[in-house]
Deep mutational scan, measured.
Amino acid sequence: AVSDRLIGRKGVVMEAISPQNSALVKVDGETWRATSGTVLDVGEEVSVKAIEGVKLVVEKLE
């Protein structure tokens, strides 16, 4: 799938994300809905860990 190429890519949080709420991230110039197990604020850099349906699963870039 096209989205599989995004695993391992870096992105930027466009809307705050919490474990209860998905929000938008920008990866390679494209906007995607994403979820995370932690709270992520706007502007934080993230890494794509997986794809669940049409959502990216991201975590904060260390």
Rank of each mutant, 00 (worst) to 15 (best):
Ala1Asn: 11
Ala1Tyr: 12
Ala1Cys: 13
Ala1His: 11
Val2Gly: 10
Val2Ser: 10
Val2Phe: 12
Ser3Pro: 13
Asp4Arg: 13
Asp4Asn: 13
Arg5Ser: 09
Arg5Glu: 06
Leu6Val: 05
Leu6Pro: 00
Leu6His: 02
Ile7Cys: 07
Gly8Trp: 00
Arg9Leu: 11
Arg9Val: 05
Lys10Pro: 07
Lys10Asn: 07
Gly11Leu: 01
Val12Thr: 08
Val13His: 00
Val13Arg: 00
Val13Thr: 05
Met14Thr: 08
Met14Gly: 00
Glu15Val: 11
Glu15Phe: 09
Ala16Phe: 15
Ala16Gln: 09
Ile17Arg: 13
Ile17Pro: 13
Ser18Ala: 08
Ser18Glu: 07
Pro19Cys: 13
Gln20Lys: 10
Gln20Trp: 12
Asn21Gly: 14
Asn21Ala: 10
Ser22Met: 12
Ser22Asp: 15
Ser22Thr: 12
Ala23Ile: 15
Ala23Ser: 07
Ala23Gly: 15
Leu24Met: 09
Leu24Glu: 03
Val25Ser: 02
Lys26Ser: 10
Val27Lys: 01
Asp28His: 04
Asp28Lys: 02
Gly29Met: 04
Gly29Gln: 05
Glu30Gly: 06
Thr31Gly: 03
Thr31Asp: 06
Thr31Pro: 04
Trp32Leu: 03
Trp32Ser: 00
Trp32Arg: 00
Trp32His: 06
Arg33Asp: 08
Arg33Phe: 14
Arg33Ile: 14
Arg33Asn: 10
Thr35Phe: 09
Thr35Ala: 06
Gly37Ile: 13
Thr38His: 11
Thr38Ser: 12
Thr38Phe: 09
Val39Phe: 14
Val39Trp: 15
Val39Cys: 13
Leu40Gly: 01
Leu40Ile: 09
Asp41Asn: 14
Asp41Thr: 14
Val42Thr: 05
Val42Cys: 06
Gly43Thr: 02
Glu44Val: 09
Glu44His: 06
Glu44Cys: 12
Glu44Thr: 12
Glu45Tyr: 13
Glu45Phe: 13
Glu45Lys: 09
Glu45His: 11
Glu45Cys: 15
Val46Met: 02
Val46Trp: 03
Val46Gln: 02
Val46Tyr: 03
Ser47Thr: 15
Ser47Gln: 14
Ser47Lys: 13
Val48Asp: 02
Val48Leu: 02
Val48Asn: 02
Lys49Tyr: 07
Lys49Asn: 05
Lys49Ser: 07
Lys49Trp: 06
Lys49Gly: 03
Lys49Ala: 07
Lys49Thr: 12
Lys49Cys: 11
Ala50Ile: 04
Ile51Lys: 04
Ile51Asp: 02
Glu52Pro: 01
Glu52Thr: 08
Glu52His: 10
Gly53Asn: 04
Gly53Lys: 03
Gly53Ala: 04
Gly53Thr: 03
Val54Lys: 12
Val54Tyr: 13
Val54Ser: 14
Val54Glu: 15
Lys55Asp: 08
Lys55Ser: 13
Lys55Val: 15
Lys55Gly: 08
Lys55Tyr: 15
Val57Leu: 08
Val57Cys: 06
Val57Lys: 05
Val57Gln: 05
Val58Ala: 02
Val58Asp: 00
Glu59Pro: 02
Glu59Trp: 04
Glu59Arg: 05
Glu59Asp: 07
Glu59Val: 11
Lys60Asp: 01
Lys60Val: 06
Lys60Pro: 09
Leu61Glu: 06
Glu62Pro: 11
Glu62Trp: 12
